[in-house]
Design a protein around this nucleic acid. Structure first.
Lengths: 211, 211
DNA sequence: ACAAATCGACCGACCGTCGGTCAATAAATT
DNA sequence: AATTTATTGACCGACGGTCGGTCGATTTGT
């Protein structure tokens, strides 16, 4: 049979078969994310991913060592983005208005999380939350802790266990946000405000509000 | 062919091949939980589960429609147990000491969660947290909300958004607890206390602690 | 009282699919 | 031209899930 003798793709631009690693990586990740979002991680096969990304199966494994490795990469991208958005909002705050910085951190967290929770889920289901090496959690937590300690030093509030409070706010914000995810942006803003109010009560000003 | 002429199992007790459904169900669930805990859900095969439970593969599918169905069943068992433990602790509290009831709910949650988080993870990874039908979350949340509203009615505290506060405490407790899971029971108790302290600050007594 | 009919828990060989491998090929780089 | 790097897709073994069938117990018919 003589079918297809090399076939140099006669028409259209030759469309180079190889691409810079960065591009391929991105195309694969984007394809995977799209499918994961559409039908779930388990239900998405490698064959579907490579078909979507227009490459052969082997290429997937040239860039990722496993399906799970892809998930990790997607997670890193997600977190970097989350962190960056928070940082940007924080940069727009007066440097020493700790109350506003904390409120901003909380409200923006609620907002960004509400917008991106579907990807968050995909990327962190399978991850055990207790994983010490969970970079995501740690980076975000450190950012929050820095604010709490900043305000502490500046005398904006006085908390006994900054780390415990940070943990509570961090987890509380994400968990609570699950509840209003379906809501319109409007209600979300109101909700974010309520969350921030409740959280801020955990950080009393340095009088004696003992109980 | 005459192989096996009824063979009434000559020695030892007849050892009935069949068992009440409840027993088999339990044996399968226990076998599965053990293996899931030991090597993870993904890495555990149905064949391993049935081997551990001493039945054939078909029997597994006689009781469970899929591996995931088993996970769901395990989850229900876990939650029922969690809820029961909390309820028991609550029953030991003075009926109208809302402060103590809330503190108990929080501290026992931390403790039970710290003891059982490995099963929790197994059983709730794969579950999307936003799942409206998440019975687990709802039952626990309702229990907590009832306390908050009880205290509100009794005038023990005054919160504007009981549900938001419940959400924050519920999520905060679980998330924060991840952090001290490795600790000894001793430190866990101290930690639970700190968590409760911080949380209770979100529920100010009905003076004017505005901010 | 006995046998035939019925039931359903239980079995395990089998199947299709999927994640992952690898030897071969093509392009890029030196 | 030689060497390295990107890409391909046929192939493999393992796994989740299916299905025709067995066997002891219980109910029904006589």
């Amino acid at each position: 049979m003589d079918h297809k003798t090399t076939k140099p793709t006669p028409l259209a631009a030759k469309a180079p078969r190889t691409k810079p690693a960065e591009i391929r990586l991105n195309e694969l990740m984007t394809a995977a994310e799209k499918l994961f979002l559409a039908k779930g991680v388990e239900a998405t096969t490698i064959n579907e991913i490579v078909k979507e990304a227009q490459v052969a199966k082997g290429t997937f494994y040239h860039y990722f060592s496993s399906k799970n490795d892809m998930l990790v990469a997607l997670g890193e991208r997600y977190t970097a983005d989350f962190l960056a958005r928070l940082q940007k909002a924080l940069d727009a705050c007066p440097d020493h208005d700790w109350l506003q910085r904390l409120r901003t951190w909380i409200e923006v967290s609620v907002d960004v999380y509400a917008q991106t929770y579907r990807t968050h889920d995909i990327v962190y289901t399978n991850h055990h939350h207790h994983d010490r090496s969970n970079q995501a959690r740690n980076a975000l937590l450190d950012q929050l802790l820095a604010i709490i300690e900043g305000g502490q030093l500046a005398g904006t509030w006085r908390v006994e266990q900054p780390r415990v409070v940070a943990l509570l706010i961090y987890s509380g914000v994400h968990g609570a946000t699950d509840d209003i995810i379906a809501a319109k942006a409007n209600d979300r803003a109101r909700f974010a405000h309520q969350v921030a109010d409740a959280c801020l009560r955990m950080l009393p000003p340095p009088k004696k509000t003992t109980r």
